[in-house]
Nucleic acid binder design. Structure first.
Length: 580
RNA sequence: GGACCUGUGGUGCAGCCUGGAGUGCACGCCGCCCUGUCAAGGCGGAGGUCGCGGGUUCAAAUCCCGUCAGGUCCGCCA
C-alpha cells in the first residue's frame, strides 16, 4: 500500500491507507481532527483525516483537541479489539495505539459542516471555499479533474502534439463573446482583452509550422453565467495541419476516451456520429442527450389535410412521454408556455387512455389522425403524446426542449453517451442587414459538395464543422479552417464583408495566411463540463476550486471590488459615478 | 434585460397557505459525567436584526409592495 510519495519529513503515511498489513509498525500521520470521542479521563478516540480518509487514534487519557485542529500523531498500527471493527471505514480493521499527539495548529469551530451528514447552502460553501474544499466530495472532484488533465496531456503527447502557451493579454476580436478588458499602463486609454479562446493564436501556430498543437487553456467570456458556464473556463485546445475532419476526430477521440478511462475506470466504446439535421429532426436539438428515448416522430403527412387548425403547418412533430398521462393540467400549461417561449404557436397534448385519447383537440381530429397520434412511438395507455405544428426547426426545437425537461435523468445516474455532430450549416439565418450570419466563425470551410451553392443558396450550405456532445451537454466544437484566399474571399463576400472590413477585423490572421498557410483543422472542448459529468455533478462549480456565483461575484475574496484612485489614475481611467 | 424558486441561532430544516409572545426538530458549540467508541451516550447551558426597507393590521417570520443576495432557466455565449 505504501507509495514513495506518502512519506515526508513530518509524516510516514497517509491516514486512510493503513491496513492490517501495517500492524506492528510505529509511524507518524498528519491531518485534521474529524471527530473526537471522549470517555472520561482515561480514554479518548480521535479520528484524524487527510484526503485519503480517516484513521482512528486511541488516546489513553484526556486530550485537548477540537474539530479541525491540525495534528501530527505518532502511534503503533494495531489490530482493533474483537467486536470494535468498523466496516464503514477503509481503515476499520486497525487503529493507531500508544499515540503521541502534537498539535501543529489549533482551529476555530468551522462555519460549515465538514464531512457532516448535511450539505451547507452553496452561498456558505463559496464564502468558506477553503473549508468546503476539505470535504471528501471536493477532494474527489478536483483530484478526478487532475487525472483527466493528465490523461489528456499524455494522449496528445503520445500523438506527437506540441503544447504551446498563448498570451492572456491579447487584442480585441470584434465578433463573438463579450471580452474582459485590461487597461494598459503604458498606453493610457488603450486596452488588452483576455482571450475568449486561443482561436486566432492557434491558427497562427499552424502558419508557423507547429503542425500539431495543443494546450489546456483558460478562456474568458464576459457573458451571463449558467450551471455549465463560468466567466473563466478551461478548454482543451487543439489544431493540426495537413489533416481532415477524420484526423481531428481520431486525435480528440483518443484523448476523450483516455480521459474517461482515467476518470471512471472504464473505456467507452466508439463514439457514434449524427448529422446536424438528424439531431434536430430526431431530438430537437444540436446537442442530443442519447441516454433516453422519447425521439421525435414526424406526423406531417398524417396531418396534411387536417381540420384541426392548431395542427395545420408545414411540419407536425410529436413525442411520446412515457407515463405522462397523469401530468397535472398546470404542468401541461407550463409546458405550453415553454413551447411558446421557443417560438411555437402552441402545444397540443393527448392523454392516451384505455378508452382512447383525451385532449381538448380531440373533436377536431379525424379518426385516422387520432389513430396516428395514439400510435406515436408505440404509445400505450398511461402515456402522453405532445405535438407541435410549425416550420420544421421551430417544431423540433420546442419539442426538443420539452424532451429534455421531461426525460433527462440525473447526471450521476449515467451512462455516458457521446456523439459527434457533423455537417452543421455554414450560416444560421440572416442578420438585420439581410446578410447571412456565420454559424461557427468566418474561417470555417464549407462542405466541398455544397461549395457551388455558396452564392446562390448560402443557407443550404453545410460546413466542415463539428461538435462533440456528451449527455446533452456540448463539450466542444471545431472545424476545418479555410486556408485558401479565394474561398475566404467568397465567404466574406457572402457575409457582405468588404476587403477593408476583413482586413480591419482579422488583418493579422489574413496577413499571415499570405505567407504560406497549410490546410488545417482543429477542435476545442470544455474540461470543466467533462469533469463535471464524470464526477456526476450537475454544475461545473463543483469541479472548480474557486468558482464565481451566477452574478459573477467571488464570495470568498469579495471580487469584483472598487480599486484605489491611485491605481485607476495609473492606467488612465476615470470612473463615472453610477447613474443612480 | 426577463421568468421562477430560496433566504428563520454557527449549520441543515419545520413554522408562512389560514397573522396572535422568537415556537419546534436535528447537527454543531460550551460545562459536568462516562475506560472501546466510531451518527458514541447521559445531564445541563449559551446562542436570533426570521436577508434588508416600507405598507396593511390592535398585532407580521407569516399578508402586500420594493430591494439585496444565492440558485435554475430565457435572452446572451461567432
Amino acid at each position: 500500500m505504501s507509495t514513495p510519495s506518502e512519506s515526508t519529513a513530518m509524516r510516514d503515511r497517509f491516514c486512510g491507507t493503513l491496513r492490517t498489513s501495517d500492524v506492528g509498525t510505529r509511524l507518524a500521520v498528519c491531518g485534521w481532527v474529524a471527530k473526537r470521542r471522549e470517555h472520561g479521563e482515561h480514554l479518548a478516540f480521535v479520528d484524524l483525516r487527510d484526503h485519503t480518509g480517516l484513521i482512528q487514534c486511541v488516546i489513553d487519557g484526556a486530550v485537548d483537541v477540537h474539530s479541525e485542529f491540525v495534528l501530527r500523531v505518532t502511534g503503533t498500527v494495531t489490530v482493533r479489539p474483537e467486536g470494535t471493527l468498523n466496516p464503514h471505514l477503509g481503515t476499520g480493521e486497525v487503529e493507531l495505539a500508544d499515540c503521541v499527539v502534537e498539535v501543529l495548529a489549533t482551529a476555530e469551530t468551522p462555519p460549515l459542516s465538514i464531512g457532516g451528514r448535511v450539505e451547507s447552502d452553496e452561498q456558505v460553501r463559496l464564502k468558506w471555499r477553503f473549508l468546503d474544499l476539505r470535504q471528501d466530495r471536493m477532494q474527489k472532484n478536483l483530484r478526478l479533474r487532475a487525472r483527466i488533465n493528465s490523461a489528456i496531456r499524455a494522449a496528445f503527447d503520445r500523438q506527437g502534439f506540441c503544447e504551446v502557451e498563448t498570451p492572456l493579454l491579447w487584442a480585441p476580436t470584434p465578433e463573438g463573446a463579450r471580452e474582459f478588458v485590461i487597461p494598459s499602463r503604458h498606453f493610457p486609454g488603450s486596452f488588452y482583452v483576455l482571450p475568449q479562446s486561443p482561436q486566432l493564436a492557434k491558427q497562427l501556430l499552424m502558419v508557423a509550422g507547429f503542425d500539431r498543437y495543443y494546450q489546456i487553456a483558460r478562456c474568458m467570456r464576459d457573458e451571463d453565467l449558467r450551471a455549465d458556464r463560468q466567466y473563466e473556463f478551461t478548454q482543451l485546445d487543439v489544431e493540426a495541419s495537413f489533416v481532415t475532419q477524420e484526423d481531428v476526430f481520431g486525435f480528440v477521440t483518443e484523448a476523450v476516451l483516455d480521459a474517461a478511462e482515467a476518470a471512471t475506470g472504464e473505456r467507452p466504446g466508439p463514439i457514434e456520429r449524427l448529422t446536424w439535421f438528424e439531431c434536430l429532426d430526431r431530438f430537437g436539438t444540436d446537442k442530443p442527450d442519447l441516454r433516453f428515448g422519447m425521439e421525435l416522430v414526424d406526423l406531417t403527412e398524417q396531418f396534411a389535410a387536417t381540420e384541426a387548425r392548431a395542427l395545420r403547418a408545414p411540419t407536425v412533430k410529436a413525442m411520446r412521454v412515457p407515463g405522462g398521462a397523469d401530468l397535472a393540467r398546470a404542468r401541461l400549461d407550463a409546458m405550453t408556455e415553454r413551447a411558446k417561449q421557443l417560438g411555437a404557436g402552441g402545444l397540443a397534448w393527448f392523454r392516451v387512455t384505455e378508452s382512447g385519447l383525451d385532449s381538448p383537440l380531440l373533436k377536431f381530429l379525424s379518426d385516422e389522425e387520432a389513430v396516428a397520434v395514439a400510435r406515436v412511438d408505440d404509445a400505450v395507455p398511461g402515456d402522453l403524446v405532445l405535438a407541435v405544428a410549425d416550420v420544421h426547426a421551430v417544431a423540433c426545437r420546442a419539442l426538443g426542449a420539452l424532451r429534455v425537461a421531461l426525460g433527462s435523468p440525473p447526471v450521476a445516474q449515467g451512462p455516458h453517451r457521446y456523439c459527434w455532430v457533423t455537417e452543421f450549416p455554414l450560416f444560421e439565418g440572416l442578420g438585420a442587414d439581410g446578410a447571412p450570419l456565420s454559424a461557427h466563425h468566418p474561417f470555417t470551410m464549407p462542405h466541398p459538395d455544397d461549395l457551388d451553392r455558396l452564392e446562390s443558396d448560402p443557407l443550404s450550405v453545410r460546413s466542415q464543422s463539428y461538435d462533440l456532445v456528451l449527455n446533452g451537454w456540448e463539450l466542444g466544437s471545431g472545424s476545418v479552417r479555410i486556408h485558401r484566399g479565394d474561398i475566404q474571399r467568397r465567404v466574406f463576400s457572402v457575409l457582405r464583408m468588404t476587403d477593408e472590413e476583413a482586413e480591419q477585423r482579422f488583418g493579422f490572421l489574413l496577413g499571415a495566411f499570405r505567407y504560406g498557410a497549410p490546410p488545417h483543422a482543429g477542435f476545442a472542448f470544455g474540461i470543466d463540463r467533462l469533469a463535471a459529468i464524470f464526477a456526476g455533478e450537475e454544475n461545473i462549480r463543483e469541479v472548480i476550486a474557486f468558482p464565481k456565483t451566477q452574478s459573477g461575484a467571488d464570495l470568498m475574496t469579495g471580487a469584483p471590488t472598487p480599486i484605489a484612485a491611485s491605481q485607476l489614475a495609473e492606467v488612465g481611467i476615470e470612473v463615472r459615478p453610477s447613474p443612480t
